[in-house]
Design a protein around this nucleic acid. Structure first.
Lengths: 211, 211
DNA sequence: TACCTTTAGTAACAGATGTTACAAAGCATA
DNA sequence: TATGCTTTGTAACATCTGTTACTAAAGGTA
């Protein structure tokens, strides 16, 4: 039963009849950190409502090169799904659980009918689109206007924030994948950040001091 | 009177009653190439429906550095406005007419009421959000995965496409602003593209051969 | 034509990032 | 402890991009 969690996170948003429908058609999904939720090119059949945890959204090019786009946070404005869950389209992104997470999966069919029936749902979907758009704009800013050292620090700060812990458990290689660069570059810049007193490092562990 | 142009571009999309409302509340705006339509931070009061021409959407950082995000094309899937025209928010982007353009300006107030009344309008807004999202993803891909020479060629191809002419009238400096780099870099890379036979150049004029 | 402004070409250099190769340190386990 | 795998540190170098400075060409105008 996930009634309580749903109430807690979305009760103030949706009217009672809509909450009932979500309870009836939605299913609770628990995922462990690292688990993949959706792959690029996959058909999107459900829209996720995040109850707890955090999801990272990745993009990939033809060569298999990856890039982290943004995190969807637990307790976010009210985390919408992904960029593109309307109308039987395929996913443009990969979604991976950054932490353990609880998600309500709503079938897309219901979603479309709710758009007509419930004003609050309509508002929710539009707001979510808007929020995702803003995230993407930030991603663009980061790529266009920042150098790698600032991107790295920002990434560590973001990551510390979404996992709610200033200790980040990750290898340099994993960070390099997220930022689409090489391990050596990350090691070099991490050392620089450490010398500047912004982080401290141990094997598999980075502590963000400058939050 | 812009009834005919409206019919031609949006008639197949919207039901007759909605078309009437658009005619009643919307106003036609003609803008010349280069004219600014909206500035970052400005309150958005109207949603634009593009009838002809092309609009370029720019982003800017704190230091005044610019970046072209994407073009909104004449005859596009049915060009939606900007990223963020819902609910009295301020603009995250700058919009500048890339060519002469004709636009119907619809007050935001109407838009919100139409969301409830007209299924076709609802669909239109959602599809537009989705299309803008895809454009932004392409922008991210370009920034993250391509080097400047490929970005430049892509930019020239895109630009040739939206103006409907393989002759591009622009200085190297103007191109540098769009791609957020320096004039010297653009000159260097243009010369390289010319040597590779992909473009030809004259003062204030670049012809894209490899379309 | 002479002059001026705008635009473009080029060299020389600096800095950021990416690559390769190898060594060293940390950790797990036989 | 000895061994092997993973992770990190570092050097040396290549390449890409950005910067400065100067020259040259194109076009407009007196």
């Amino acid at each position: 039963m996930f009634k309580e969690a749903l109430e807690q996170h979305y009760g103030f948003l949706f009217e009672p009849t809509l909450m009932e429908e979500i309870l009836r058609f939605g299913s609770l999904k628990k995922v462990a950190a690292g688990q993949q939720l959706i792959e690029i090119g996959e058909l999107i059949t459900h829209m996720p409502l995040l109850l707890s945890g955090a999801i990272k959204i990745m993009r990939e090019d033809d060569h298999g090169d990856e890039l982290l786009l943004y995190f969807i946070e637990k307790g976010d404005t009210c985390a919408m799904s992904f960029s593109c869950c309307m109308g039987g389209t395929k996913s443009d992104i990969r979604a991976v659980a950054e932490t353990d997470a609880e998600i309500i999966m709503v079938p897309v069919a219901q979603m479309e009918s709710w758009m007509g029936k419930y004003k609050t749902w309509q508002r929710f979907v539009l707001d979510s689109y808007q929020a995702r758009m803003k995230e993407l704009l930030h991603t663009v800013d980061t790529l266009a206007f920042l150098r790698m050292d600032d991107r790295l620090l920002k990434h560590l700060q973001d990551k510390a924030k979404v996992i709610g812990d200033d200790h980040i458990h990750a290898t340099h290689q994993e960070i390099a994948y997220d930022l689409h660069t090489s391990r050596v570059v990350i090691s070099r810049l991490l050392k620089k950040l450490e010398n500047e007193g912004k982080i401290s490092m141990h094997r598999n562990d980075i502590t963000v001091i400058d939050l």
